[in-house]
Structure formats: C-alpha cells, structure tokens
Design a protein around this nucleic acid. Structure first.
Length: 951
RNA sequence: GCUGAAGUGGUGGAAUUGGUAGACACGUUGGACUUAAAAUCCAAUGGCCAUUAUGGCCGUGCGGGUUCAAGUCCCGCCUUCAGUACCA
C-alpha cells in the first residue's frame, strides 16, 4: 500500500498549500523579515524548459530554509509580460498580445489551436513556495500605472551635482528666477546656454519649458539612435551584439530621431560607489564598472588658428601634452565643416561620406586599416603655441568624450600608427625610452622630458602641474569622463507601456497623476504606419482631452483643448526596474507600495537571476531606485543587498548521421566510415545511454518514415552537441515531463545536485535515477526499510543515530548559507544510507531529518510529516538545533607531550591507541625540532602519522 | 587586445580554505534475487607494480618556488569558457 507514489503526493500537497495559503507573507509581523526574489520571467509561448527553474529552485530552497529559521519570508513571483515576441506573434497572427500573453501565463488553447501549458501551471507543478497572492504582471494597467508614475517623477526632477541628488523641478524654476543658471551645478544637455535671472524671467512660457527640458531627468532630444529597419524599432546599445540586433540578428544603422532619454549619466558616480555596499558577484560588479567606464583626466581647449572656434578634447594623459603633434576629430565632429580649408574640402567630404556609409559593423570588423584625412587647419598648442595639424580619422569615436583627441603618438599606439601611416612627426617626451618601434603607454614607469615646465616629473606630478597651468590660462581643467551614455527610452513598438504624455504646442505635457493609468489603445495592426510612425499612430482613439481628462478620438484634435498623445512606448526595462517594491503591496491603488510596507520589507535580501542582465536591467534598476530614494519615495537606494547569478542550463542536442546523398543513417560509432551530415533530432527520443528510439523517430518527422538505419550492437547511438536549449535544436526538455516521470522532488533535488549553482552546465538525465532512488530510500527509511506500513517509533536514538543527525544538521545549514546546494544533496544521501544501515526508526531522529530535507524535497517531507501526526505544514517547523556534543562523543581527549615540554589535549578517534600516537610523535621528531618555540594551533593525527599545523 | 572565472578519475562533481585528494552520484564490471526482464540489494572501480593478507610507486593542465605539509599560496607558461572591445 505504502509505496512512494510521488505524483499523488505532490498533487495533494500543492493543492493543500494553495488552499491554505501556506506561503502568504504578512506585512505586519513580529518576526524578522527576509525577502527572496527571482528575476521574473517573460512568459513566452514556448513555455518553461528545465533550465528556467534552476534559479527558482535555489531561491525556493533558501526561502523555505529561512522560514524554518523563523523569518517572515517574502517570496513572490510575477511576469515581465510586455515584450517583443508577443508583438511579433501579434503581427504574424493578428492576435492581441494581451490575449496571447494571458494564455502563455494561464494556459489554454490559443487561436491557432496550439495547446499552451501555461507558465503558472508549469511552475505550480514544481512545488514552489511563492506567495501568488502578490503576483504582478507588468502589462496590467494596475501595474503600469506605477511605471508611468515613475516616469512622471523623473520628468519632474533635476539633478544637482553639488548635492549629488535629484530634486523637484519646482526648485530649479525658483533658482532660475532668482539667479539664472550661471552658478548652478546641475546635470543638463551639453551646450546649454547660460542665462541670468532677468533673462529667465523675460523668457516666454514656451522658452522656459524648452530650457527646463534640458535639465529634466527624462527629456526629449534628437538622438542618434540604433535603428533596426527589420524590427522597425530603436535598440539600446545592450540590445546590439556584434553590430546586429540581439533578437533576430538584423542589421542596425545609425539614425537621428526625437526620443525620450533617461539622464542615467547623472548617477554614474553613485552607481559606481554603490557597488561597494552590495554583495553581488565580482564579475557582475566588474562589468557594471566597465560599462560605466570612469576615467580621470583633463579637458583641454585648443584654439584654432585663424578662426574663432576652438576644439575641446578629453585626455587621460595631460602629462603628455608636449608630445601632441596633431589632433584628430571624429568624422561626425560638428566642426569638421567649419575648419576644413578650401583645398582640402573635396577630400574631406569624400572621407566623411565614406565613413558614414560604413555600418557600425564594418567599422568594427576593420579596426586595423588606418584611414584619415587632413583638414588643412591648425590648432595652437596651449603652451608652446606651435601649430598642430588637425586631422580627421575614424578611429576617433563621436560618441565618446568630445569626439576629438589630442594625438600623442609617442604615448598612444593608435596615435602612433596614425602618425606613422601619414608621416606625421613623433616627438619623444619620455626619458630613456625607445619609441622607434612602438608607442610607450606605461604611465607609471617613466619620467617626462622635452616638456618645458614639467621636465623631470613623473606621471602624477606632471598631470597635476599641467592641469594647474591649463586652469590658469583658462584653457582646460581636470575632468572625469564616463563611458556610460544616457539611456534612450522610446521604442517604436505597440506592446509596451504608453507614455503618460501629450503634446501641446510642440512641448510634452504630463497627464495628471490622478488620471493614470493611461491605457494602451487598441489598434488594427501592430505594424508601424505607412508614414513611419510607431504602431500607436494607427490608434484612432488616441488624443487627450485636457478638459475631461480622458482619452478621445484623434479626429477631435482640432479642438483647442484636445491634443495628440505620445506614439512611442517604453522599453522592456521600464517595467522591471522597480517591480521588487510593488510586490510589497501589490494591490495598493494609491502608491507604488505603502510607506509601511516599504519600510518593513526594505530591499531584496537575496536576488537570484542570470548574469545576462548585468548592464541592462540591473543597472537601470539601480538607477531608478537611487532616484526614487532621492525623491523620498523609497527608503533604500539599492534594489538588492545580495545577488547570485545562476548558471545557464544548456541543452544537449542529439545528432544522427546521414550518409551524404542517401536516406541512410549510421550510428555514431560508424560515422567515421562514411561522409555524413549531422542532423539534429528530438533529444527526447534518445535514452540516458544515447540509444535512439527508432520507432519514435519514424513517427516524429516524415523524412524518417522509410529511412534506413545502420546499427551498432543492435542499437542506434546518437551523437551529442552541447548548446543553448532551444526549439530550433530540438533539445528542449520540459520540466512537466520530468515531474510526471520522476516527480517534482526529484527534479528539484536533481537540479540542485547537478553542480554549483553559478556554473553553466549541460542538462542530462544520466544521473537523475540516483536522486530518485534516494527519495525512494528516504521513503523506505520511514517504513521500516520496506515499502510496508509507516514505522517510526518513540525509541531512544542511539549515539550513532545522533551523530548522523547532527553532522547532517551542521553540514546542511552551512551548505545552504553558502549556496552550495549540490553538496547538501550528497549529505542527505549519506545520512539516509547511514540511518538505514543503523536501522534507525526513532522519531527523535527522523522528525528533524525531515525538516532538513523539506526545503529541497517539500512534497515528500510534507507527506511523511503528516504521517508523523502533524496537522500543520512542515513549512513552519523550526530548523533543528545543532549540538556539537553528539559529534565529539566518539572521540576522547588524550594528552601528548610536545617538544619535550608542552602538553596538548587532543580529541582523538577512539580507535587510535596510545602506542600509535606515541610512535607517530617519535617518528616526527625532526618536525618538532623545527616547530620549537612556536605554538601549534591544531594538531592533526592520522593513523601512523602526526601532522602539526602552526598558527 | 583588455577584464573576469576555471582546468581534479570514463562522466557530473567533493575536499572543513594549507592537513589521509577523488566524498556523493552516474557509468562500468562481478554477484544475489528472478523462467526472464525491470526494480531492488551486495561488492569492486584514479593509474602502474606486486600479491599470501600485508604493500609500494606515480598522480589535481605544464614548468619552477615557498612549506614539516600544496588541488589550495607565490612566479612563469599553456588551454578553455564568459564579458568587453579603436574609450583617447
């Protein structure tokens, strides 16, 4: 009767948890809080594969562990449900993205007749302890209301560099009207003109608005963007990989468009500084640091001879300024036209045109070819006043620094190569350094020479002196430059948050907070309009009535109180930047979350997700959280205290080998004898020992119907290829299948057992039987070693029983705290083997053991727990206390003499005799001599040997 | 090129952070049970040599070093993976 029927058990307890709200977190509790969060998934139509739950299982183990430790645990889940795939599916099929998204989450049959399991159903089968009463979906109006609200807060704010903090725009207006902007140290658009208070006050309302837009933390600007014609949208830098779109691999070109931008650069320094306070993986911190790209140096202004213009450059090596023998401008530099002389005009125009035509990708692929052209003009060296020829070269990037460099060929390899190529002078300013072959870029190990007032100085001193001298001449100053760019925030898509913005007189206006959310309008088609407007350009009811404060038909726009609404939507990261706070109070209609809730939960204590979000979601989220902290909305300025990147689970594709030009397939061992093509087949058709189910294959796809198979030893063996798990490689393994075959507890434990959480690893079912038979053994342990009746007694535990239990408690608690989930699975296996061998049936042992195992295998733990007579869920049971005395009882204290004088009391195994130890000590007399005078911290004794550790 | 991580049996991976390397699991081999298979259980399993049990030698990518003691620390290489890339 009492076999381990995992399917029944798991269904029973999943139902129980849902019905009893076992995992609902309370916002008011005397317990300490703990917030465990997973990066919420995008619900794609393909459903979950076994790789997705890895991080969720880890966080679930940890959340359950923390509950056992007496914490009030918040462990929510939701969906990042706006996104491009649903939109592209909508374009193809005409189905509304909201409908397909709902089906993808909740399951059902879509309009094409496909049966979709649904993310929620798939997740439920794995037995997670999520508090589903707090679910959020970024595409729900109740949710995106708050995304829009945050956008408005950003619009209504500016950033003061002196205070390193964001303030309301009303305070900026006050400053302007009282003292203009001359003394103000605020983040704003480059080249913003200065004005006095009188000038400000004389400006028209419209002009004032235009000026304010240059200071707002989200602003409209003509931006050069990455336009992807195939997708019909703008992409962020991090959505482009190797010059093509990350999604789909389409070409990307540069194009100027009016776009919303986020002034994330204002927060560059704080985003760097904040990394010190948070416990995130070092590689992830490093990639954020690199992405922000802080470099210290100076900006230097070069006058142009015979012109009123001057060129500003940024350099990290002001100490090498006397080695500057030319300047290089990016081909896109705004002064190129101005300074090119008549003689050079044709050549320059040709060069600029040629580089503009080259795509980003070509320019990147071809970094070795040196190209450039002389403008004919000369700049003036700030100190020597010698003429410096101004060149144009595409090795200088328009988007970094000022798009112009002072070229110091002796100290920079790129400048050196350029100078060599065009026969420009290479003056040497480094003492005793040979630069006949290459530039010398090592700034730490040289002394400056041939450099007027900085001769004989090292890099540091020379830099300081040059900056002082430049400041005196008003031709430069020390400067910190960041690689980080402001983030473009507009997407020409349908399936995203609409901006709460309408346009009056060409200027953007925010919709009042009390009228949010601004609902996404209906459109006939999800494509851009014929005139190139985003899909929202197709909406016929998409104008804002400022009298009624509601959306009305576009045909009424002529009316003076009705205005066009913004046609762009927000990017994918908008909805995911602050979702962790919405979970705290997800149904609150009046705030992102109540102050009490935010104060109680603080920030995320443990955040688990993939490292691919390092420079996107995780950077933007930190930015928004810092901003909302500045404005007093949030009590914390980082989203997550600790973060762990789970490694990806890769797929193992199955390969068959077709003899070229035939319909004959040879087994893997025979492929060397023929010329073959590798073809991927459904990996689920191969078993754990790589044997292919030929019958299944024939039914899988028609071309295998009458194929011939050449076997080895009567079997067809497939080859393997490890690659990303994806439908196109037929290597997707569905967790539902694993659950029905082995059970969710097996799946959970097996995924944890596969290896260290943060490591990438291929999926293979090879070892799953080991974990599964462990659970069967566990079951038997509570049934008298058989699959008979439940057999736990009140008998006293033996010393061995207690030893096994307590070493398991110790190890498992350590493992979980260190996130070494794989080793604690081994620990359980050892414990169950030992207790089985000891024929343990003592409740005093078996009860705590269940609590240890329940974070990993919650269903079987609940079942056995209830058989032990408990009415409450095991989830609330207290984690067992570790008592060291049970471990040392099997050893004894034993004194030994050391170095003739000292005496140590050692804890030794019982089976080690006095004679053995003395013999060992004698044998190591030499060692002791060398240790004389030092105090050993610990003495390790092994049979036949004694080994000392000195402190 | 730069930055970061990692190289341990046939395989996935352990090793209290300097203390008996290879835990645990898979796989393989042999055995028990069975008409048979599955399931289950027991034993062996880093390599080489030896064998009458005992044993011995070599072994954590390669070459050096520190130490009584190195998978672990230091120096120099090699390889793999990930991120990033003309950043002045």
């Amino acid at each position: 009767m009492s076999k381990y029927h995992f399917n029944e058990i798991e269904a029973k307890w999943q139902k129980y948890w849902a019905k009893n709200g076992t995992f609902h977190a309370q916002n008011d509790s005397d317990k300490p809080k703990y917030y465990v969060l997973d990066m919420f998934p995008y619900p794609s139509g393909a459903g979950l594969h076994v790789g997705h739950p890895l991080g969720y299982i880890a966080s679930d183990v940890y959340a359950r562990f923390k509950r056992h430790q007496g914490y009030n645990v918040l462990h929510p889940m939701g969906y990042d449900s706006f996104g491009l795939p649903a939109e592209q599916y909508a374009i193809q099929t005409g189905q509304h993205p909201a409908d397909t998204t709902r089906v993808n989450i909740e399951g059902g049959i879509d309009k094409q007749g496909n049966t979709i399991a649904g993310y929620r159903n798939q997740l439920d089968k794995i037995g997670f302890s999520f508090d589903w009463s707090r679910e959020v979906r970024t595409s729900n109006p109740d949710y995106y209301k708050w995304t829009q609200w945050i956008f408005i807060q950003l619009f209504e704010s500016w950033y003061c560099k002196d205070h390193q903090k964001a303030f309301p725009i009303s305070e900026l207006v006050k400053v302007f009207s009282e003292q203009g902007n001359e003394k103000l140290n605020a983040e704003c658009d480059a080249g913003t003109a200065s004005f006095t208070a009188e000038e400000w006050n004389s400006y028209s309302k419209k002009r004032q608005e235009q000026v304010l837009l240059k200071y707002r933390l989200t602003y409209l600007a003509e931006t050069e963007v990455n336009w992807c014609p195939a997708l019909g949208t703008v992409l962020a830098n991090d959505e482009i990989v190797n010059g093509v779109s990350e999604r789909g691999g389409h070409p990307v070109i540069r194009k100027k468009m009016m776009q919303w931008s986020m002034r994330i650069t204002a927060y560059a320094q704080r985003l760097l500084d904040g990394l010190d306070k948070i416990d995130w993986p070092q590689p992830l911190k490093d990639s954020q640091t690199n992405w922000i790209g802080r470099s210290e140096g100076a900006s230097v202004t070069f006058k142009i001879q015979g012109s009123d213009h001057s060129i500003e450059v940024f350099t990290t090596r002001p100490d090498t300024i006397f080695g500057a023998s030319f300047m290089t401008l990016a081909p896109e530099h705004e002064l190129v036209g101005e300074i090119t002389t008549m003689e050079q005009r044709y050549e320059v125009a040709q060069y600029v045109e040629a580089t503009a035509k080259r795509s980003e990708r070509e320019r990147m692929a071809d970094v070795k070819t040196i190209s450039g052209v002389f403008t004919g003009s000369y700049a003036e060296h700030p100190f020597t006043e010698k003429p410096i020829p101004i060149w144009i070269g595409d090795y200088v990037l328009a988007g970094y620094g000022t798009g112009a460099v002072m070229a110091v060929p002796c100290g920079d390899q790129r400048d050196y190569d350029f100078a060599k190529h065009f026969g420009i002078d290479i003056p040497n300013i480094f003492e005793g350094i040979d630069i006949s072959e290459e530039a010398f870029a090592d700034k730490e190990n040289t002394i400056i020479t041939n450099s007027d007032f900085i001769n004989g100085l090292n890099y540091k001193d020379a830099t300081r002196k040059v900056i002082e001298a430049l400041e005196e001449k008003n031709q430069g100053k020390g400067k910190i430059n960041y690689r980080l760019r402001d983030a473009v925030f507009s997407r020409q898509r349908y399936w995203g948050e609409p901006f709460p913005v309408y346009y009056k007189d060409g200027l953007p206006q925010m919709i009042d907070l009390e009228h949010l959310p601004l609902h996404l309008p209906e459109v006939e088609k999800y494509l851009p309009t014929e005139s190139g407007e985003p899909p929202l350009g197709r909406a016929t009811v998409w104008a804002w009535d400022t009298n009624k404060n509601e959306v009305v038909g576009n045909d009424k726009i002529d009316n003076e109180s009705i205005f066009p609404l913004e046609l762009n939507t927000m990017p994918g990261w908008a909805g995911s930047s602050c979702y962790m706070f919405r979970y705290m109070d997800p149904k609150n209609p009046d705030a992102l979350a109540s102050e009490d809730a935010m104060k109680y939960w603080g920030n995320v204590d443990l955040y688990i997700g993939g490292s691919e979000h390092a420079t996107s979601h995780l950077l933007y989220s930190r930015f928004w959280v810092k901003f909302l902290y500045d404005r007093g909305v949030l009590p914390v300025d980082e989203p997550a205290q600790k973060l762990i990147n789970q490694g990806m689970i890769l797929g193992t594709s199955a390969l068959v080998y077709r003899v070229s030009g035939t319909n004959t397939y040879v087994s893997a061992g025979l492929k060397g004898e023929h010329e073959v093509e590798e073809i991927r087949v459904d990996v689920n058709l191969a078993n754990a020992s790589s044997e292919l189910d030929l019958e299944g294959l024939r039914n899988w796809q028609p071309q295998y119907q009458d194929a011939e198979f050449v076997l080895e030893d009567g079997k067809y063996i497939v080859g393997h290829e490890v690659e990303k798990m994806s439908k196109r490689w037929f290597n997707v393994v569905n967790p539902d299948d694993i659950c029905s075959q082995y059970g969710a507890d097996t799946l959970r434990m097996y995924e944890m057992f596969l290896g260290p959480l943060d490591q990438a690893k291929p999926w293979s079912t090879a070892g799953i039987t080991g974990v599964h038979s462990f659970l069967k053994k566990l079951w038997k342990l509570y049934h008298g070693g058989t699959e008979g009746a439940f057999a736990v007694s009140d008998a006293d535990p033996t010393k061995d029983n207690l030893k096994t239990l307590h070493k398991t408690i110790k190890k498992v608690a350590e493992d979980i705290e260190n996130f070494s989930f794989n080793t604690s699975v081994s620990t359980f296996m050892i414990a169950v083997n030992e207790l089985t061998a000891q024929k343990c049936n003592s409740r005093e042992i078996l009860e705590p053991l269940l609590i240890l195992i329940s974070p990993y295998a919650p269903h079987i733990a609940e079942e056995l727990w209830s058989k032990l007579g408990h009415n409450e869920s095991i989830a609330t049971a207290a984690f067992p206390q570790f008592e060291a005395s049970h471990l040392v009882e099997s050893s004894k204290e034993y004194p030994i003499s050391f170095n003739g004088k000292m005496r140590f009391k050692l804890e030794l195994p019982l089976d080690m005799s006095k004679e053995d130890i003395e013999a060992a000590v004698m044998a190591h007399e030499r060692t002791q001599q060398q240790l004389a005078g030092r105090t050993p911290k610990k003495v390790i004794v092994v049979p036949g040997k004694i080994i000392n550790i000195v402190g």
